[in-house]
Amino acid sequence: MRERDTEISASAELERARDELLIFEAVEEAASNPHDVLDVLLTSADSESAGEALQRQFGFTEMQADAVMSLQFRRVTHIERRNIRERCEALTEVISDLEAQAHRS
């Protein structure tokens, strides 16, 4: 039973890390192209159409588009973009480690 709980916990952690990485990758993309993102937002009639336009233009998932629309402008500063990149790298390592553990199980 304990082994099964550990597998479920590791699987949940892997899924959470993958979702978080998707969000940070979208935020990183948006922070690298703030004018393009702002153009999409300013020309959209409402938040639903803005989300759909972000998905089309940038290839974001719905979750990623929602994260980008929630993005605050302070996130596009150089230091914040570096922090986002570092978090993406850290999450990639976590995912690799969790996947390696899953394959060993």
Rank of each mutant, 00 (worst) to 15 (best):
S105N: 13
A30Y: 02
L22V: 05
M1N: 13
D46S: 12
L98K: 15
V37G: 02
E28P: 00
S47L: 12
E25T: 13
A30W: 05
L98T: 11
I84T: 13
H103M: 07
M69Y: 02
E15F: 11
R85N: 08
D5W: 06
D46T: 09
H78P: 08
N33P: 03
V94C: 10
I23L: 04
F24Y: 15
A90V: 10
R75K: 03
V68F: 01
T6P: 00
E48Q: 15
S70A: 09
E99V: 09
L21C: 09
Q55P: 00
A31R: 01
S11R: 10
I79S: 14
F58T: 05
H35W: 07
V40E: 04
C88I: 15
H35Y: 00
A26W: 02
E15W: 08
R18Y: 05
S44N: 04
T92L: 13
R16M: 13
A90Y: 15
S96A: 15
L41C: 07
F24I: 01
A50V: 08
Q64N: 02
V27K: 05
E25K: 15
E62N: 12
F58H: 07
S47K: 12
S49M: 11
E62S: 14
E48P: 06
S11V: 01
R56L: 12
R74Q: 04
H103K: 10
V40P: 00
N33Y: 09
F73P: 06
D46L: 10
E15R: 13
G59C: 09
E15C: 07
Q57V: 13
Q57L: 11
S70R: 10
R4P: 04
V68G: 00
F58K: 07
C88P: 01
D5F: 02
L14T: 06
A26C: 09
I8W: 01
H35M: 08
E48M: 14
L14D: 04
D5K: 01
R87G: 04
A10K: 11
F60N: 04
A90P: 07
S49G: 01
H78E: 15
A17I: 10
A45Y: 05
T92F: 12
R74L: 01
